[in-house]
Design a protein around this nucleic acid. Structure first.
Lengths: 229, 229
DNA sequence: CATCAAATGCTAAGAGGTTTACAATTGGTT
DNA sequence: AACCAATTGTAAACCTCTTAGCATTTGATG
């Protein structure tokens, strides 16, 4: 009955492995990195790409997901500053398995596969930390599958919102369109609208143009950990 | 447009990491292991357990999933001989996050956390292989989320069946009840029944008591890799 | 300030899944 | 052979989501 809440607070992806690294390794990786900017909406990496470098987010946020063949987007995670993505392709030795889109204007640090390989071989702790991070990702993915099967849309929307406001403050404003949130939750915009309506009526959120205000994230978060039987 | 199909053929979980290990490491782990039997339906590990050993399947199959608080079971994977489970808790340093149930009478080899830790530190290739395996698991989990959002029930049932007959032969008989398959796909038994009916009508399967016969797994598998636009 | 594209609110029709209930079948057991 | 529990087949009511369409609001731009 207890949900996984060990690591990251983002919607998914425990990709805080960079911050968990030993100081010197962390610095070395970032120092060798190339800083690069992407404009809102730009495609940072595409499914099928052979590339194996990975990215550290300095500012902005990045949507991780997949465009299906008919153009529909399914977002698995929204990553923020300090988090990283793209290690999977290197570690798994396969091409990119997800698309990454700039959620707004972002500044990234590009880290080459050689540097990561070096970090892994130079310090055994690095592999250990990576393994730990990946284990968390797998569990969060299970949570996601489970949520999709067992929770109502309203509950899933609530979860997604709580994941997006990183646990802070009494009132958090999230800058996101309803379409984006719908893609993240995995429902149509109409259904999302209804769900948001209910959450608003029960006093948990407020809807504005391109923005959603979450009123008591801490309270709601706690409530959601022990659902009524 | 290409699905992940690099590693395992089971419904999920690329947990073939044992077979990918160097010969000597593989043998050493299994030699130190304690052999143990479980009867059909027995609970091998339970969510929340603090244990950190892991299990190698010698014969039979094991269902990996979660019982929700209201008693519903959601199966994420069905693992078979040669595969393993339970490493996650050790690697992630958290309690068990899933339940494991004996799908039929199974023989397992129990491997202690010390042995695994030893294997990791003794040979750098082990960590590398683990990382690769975990990366594959994450991607398969994404596939699962994506399938739940974008595919019809019939398609998901077809996938699950193909995953269960490990790619072999012209005709594979799967020993599974409709309820179990429904738990695996994440739908009700009624919906599963309808889906099976359609698959039967189109000549892909035959339904028997406690068994489903998949007629041309190889053909269907290929067809499913390049869906029509 | 006028205009326009993006975003939101809303409705109605349709499809598909769930629940509940009950009948029919199967395979093992006494 | 008779019986029983497990499994499967089916039907109907109900509910939720999707699609498609259109009106309205908002914020930016010229």
């Amino acid at each position: 009955m207890v949900e996984s809440d060990h690591f990251s607070r983002t919607t998914f992806a425990a990709t805080g492995f960079m911050t968990a690294l030993p100081e010197d390794v962390h610095r070395r990786l970032l120092n060798h990195g190339l800083v690069r900017q992407f404009a809102k909406g730009e495609l940072i990496q595409q499914r099928g790409d052979p590339g194996r470098e990975f990215w550290h987010i300095r500012s902005g946020n990045v949507q991780i997901g997949r465009y299906s063949f008919d153009g529909k987007l399914s977002i698995f995670a929204v990553l923020g500053p300090g988090e990283s993505f793209g290690e999977q392709a290197f570690l798994g030795e396969f091409p990119r398995m997800v698309d990454a889109i700039a959620g707004n204007d972002v500044t990234l640090v590009r880290i080459g596969e050689k540097e990561l390989q070096e970090a892994i071989t130079s310090d055994p702790r690095v592999a250990r930390i990576l393994l730990k991070t990946m284990a968390h990702m797998v569990q969060q993915a299970f949570d996601l599958v489970n949520a999709g099967r067992n929770l109502s849309t309203v509950e899933r929307v609530a979860r997604a919102l709580l994941g997006l406001c990183e646990g802070e403050g009494h009132t958090v404003s999230i800058s996101i369109t309803q379409q984006e949130l719908a893609d993240l939750v995995g429902v149509s915009r109409v259904s999302l609208g209804k769900a948001l309506g209910k959450l608003e009526q029960s006093g948990n959120i407020e809807r504005n143009y391109g923005e959603i205000v979450v009123l008591n994230p801490l309270l709601s978060r706690r409530r959601h950990h022990s659902p009524a039987p």
